[in-house]
Design a protein around this nucleic acid. Structure first.
Ligand SMILES: [Mn+2]
Ligand SMILES: [Mn+2]
Ligand SMILES: [Zn+2]
Ligand SMILES: [Zn+2]
Lengths: 147, 147
DNA sequence: CTCGTAATGAAAACGGTTATCATTATCAAT
DNA sequence: ATTGATAATGATAACCGTTTTCATTACGAG
């Protein structure tokens, strides 16, 4: 629990550092957005972030949420999540190549790695004549709580 | 070439049959949309279909494109394609479990199968406590023509 | 503290999609 | 073929999430 809070604060601090060292100012609206997004277990869209952040910082404007999301995505601190009912939500991203596992009920998301698609990619590549440069892989299911 | 046209006509005819046997009427606007989509090598959005279909059927309304897409998706004749710059395009779907390979330059799409994600799914499942029920897999690259 | 300017929130504009509605066209029943 | 019920259409307006505009605020280097 304590441990979790330390983790949270570290991520928030890291994001703020990252903004500062990229020449951006550390403003209250940005911190309000980051506080929400850096600690969310699931992907959130602009309106959800807006509503949650305003609980602690009621003067926040929706436009600042959009502008902050733009910056965080540009700095690769968050990434867009595609979902059957909406492709405009964001989640804190790790570094490197990872994929998402999403709960269809509560939306809780986890990253996983360990996919070795190399043989499949080579096979499809040969078969199709394509040079394959990127892949999207995403799992959907029920988290431990929801099943 | 001839062979290709026969394939095209068959798919179009099949879609029309499918509409009819589902109780829908066979109208000219619907046929205009189907003519485009049933023969496209790449995913198209509503506006693209509208522009292409109006070349042969100029009185077509954009709203009819949206309504036809709705029906075709419901009948599982087409499927939505998610893409880094837009998630509102559609492509003719095959039956069964297949994945897309998309050219990043011209958009040409091919389906592939043969992915065996079972070991990975089991591993991630054990690790996370999730029950995994669905997966999305999509490859991006350069087609033979574009590389 | 001062000052240049990045960042903000309110409001308006924008653009893709959906809803409304009077008119038309399909097709089953004559 | 003709009819008639109504599904489907296209024009128009409404909708809603996102972006742009702009006067004001507040960050932070000096
Ligand atoms: Mn991977
Ligand atoms: Mn698969
Ligand atoms: Zn859940
Ligand atoms: Zn190509």
């Amino acid at each position: 629990m304590d441990n979790l809070n330390i983790t949270r604060d570290k991520r928030t601090a890291n994001w703020l550092d990252c903004l500062r060292s990229s020449g951006y100012r550390l403003t209250e609206p940005r911190q309000a957005v980051i506080d929400i997004l850096a600690n969310s277990q699931r992907a959130l869209n602009a309106t959800e972030i807006f509503d949650l952040a305003r609980e602690n910082y009621p003067s926040l404007g929706l436009v600042s949420v959009y502008r902050t999301l733009e910056k965080l995505e540009e700095l690769e601190l968050i990434q867009k999540v595609h979902h059957p009912d909406g492709c405009q939500s964001f989640i804190a991203g790790f570094t490197g190549h990872q994929h998402l596992l999403i709960c269809q009920v509560c939306g809780q998301a986890e990253f996983f790695e360990g996919d070795d698609l190399t043989p499949l990619i080579e096979h499809v590549s040969r078969e199709s004549g394509f040079t394959i440069e990127e892949h999207w892989l995403q799992f959907f299911g029920l988290c431990a709580k929801c099943k």
